[in-house]
């Protein structure tokens, strides 16, 4: 935590030097582009700009002074998706208020020409996560794109291999997929989650309650840069039925889905990331 300096012994003088703690406060108000440039000023600044506490403070200041809004705009007709982002970080011209960002131009990606190619769109702390099926010069792929427009970086993370339901769950069954992107404050990490649920078509009986359901949870950690399954038998076998990806809300750092325990009584419940 930042502590306010009190009663500094430094006398006012004609030179422009300020104590380091005050310099750090000043730079925490800078836009990202300036910070990327001022990494070069000195080593301690370069280190400071990577400090999680400083990043949190900078983010807080950015959202305090600016009110950026991002809008996902579907434009299937022209074969792409666009985003309106305000303010776009490289627009030096103050007159430019917002700008449409083109998925193909800015990210080098084209969505596939079919319905439901975008599975998810989420924006947290200025990082945009888009999940779906894309076409690129190399071919088609299903993946998440993590995009940080402020530093003009993007990472493409392929969906992990899906093991599928266990053999006792025979067809026909329903399958639904849920996606989420979030910031884990405990590990200071960004995570993407995929949940795939399987359930039998027929209403469950007391006997089949725990055999007719199967859930797979997979988590991608940006820090580890890898996917890992969540191993938890109660979750895998749980008869929680999540309604639809539409009934999802991100609040207080946790993703919530509306669902119910499928035992005849429809009781809303929630799943948290």
């Amino acid at each position: 935590m930042w502590r306010w300096g009190r009663r500094s012994r430094r006398c006012r003088s004609n030179n422009l030097s300020l104590p380091e703690e005050l310099l750090e406060e000043i730079v925490s108000w800078l836009p990202m582009k300036s910070m990327l440039r001022f990494r070069c000023v000195k080593k301690s600044w370069s280190t400071l700009f990577q400090n999680p506490n400083f990043i949190a403070k900078h983010l807080h200041h950015q959202t305090k002074t600016k009110n950026p809004s991002i809008l996902l705009q579907s434009s299937d007709l022209i074969g792409g998706y666009g985003f309106s982002l305000h303010p776009y970080p490289d627009d030096n011209d103050d007159a430019v208020v917002g700008r449409i960002v083109d998925l193909s131009k800015d990210l080098g990606l084209v969505t596939m020409q079919q319905t439901k190619t975008i599975n998810m769109f989420s924006c947290i702390n200025g990082i945009i996560c888009i999940g779906g099926s894309f076409r690129a010069p190399g071919g088609c792929f299903h993946s998440f794109i993590l995009w940080n427009p402020a530093i003009r970086e993007r990472k493409i993370i392929s969906y992990p291999w899906l093991p599928g339901p266990p053999s006792h769950l025979v067809k026909p069954y329903n399958s639904k997929a849920f996606y989420a992107f979030g910031y884990d404050q405990y590990s200071n990490d960004y995570k993407v989650v995929r949940i795939v649920t399987y359930n039998k078509d027929s209403p469950p009986t007391q006997k089949s309650l725990f055999t007719d359901y199967y859930n797979i949870f997979q988590v991608f950690s940006l820090k580890a840069y890898s996917w890992a399954p969540v191993i938890d038998t109660t979750l895998h076998r749980s008869n929680i039925s999540l309604l639809s990806p539409c009934y999802e809300v991100y609040f207080n750092g946790a993703h919530h889905w509306l669902g119910f325990f499928d035992n005849g009584h429809n009781k809303p419940t929630r799943g948290e990331m």
Binding site: N15, L16, S17, L18, L22, L23, E25, I26, V27, S28, W29, L30, P31, S34, R37, F38, C40, V41, K42, K43, T65, N92
Partner: peptide, 27 residues
């Protein structure tokens, strides 16, 4: 006033910032 000074330096060069704050580059 921190914000005001940040406004002032945000479009400045690395050299300007070093000179302004009396910082010696160590890279």
């Amino acid at each position: 006033f921190n914000q005001a000074l940040a406004d002032h330096i945000q479009n400045k060069s690395v050299e300007y910032v070093r000179k302004f704050f009396g910082i010696k580059g160590d890279f």
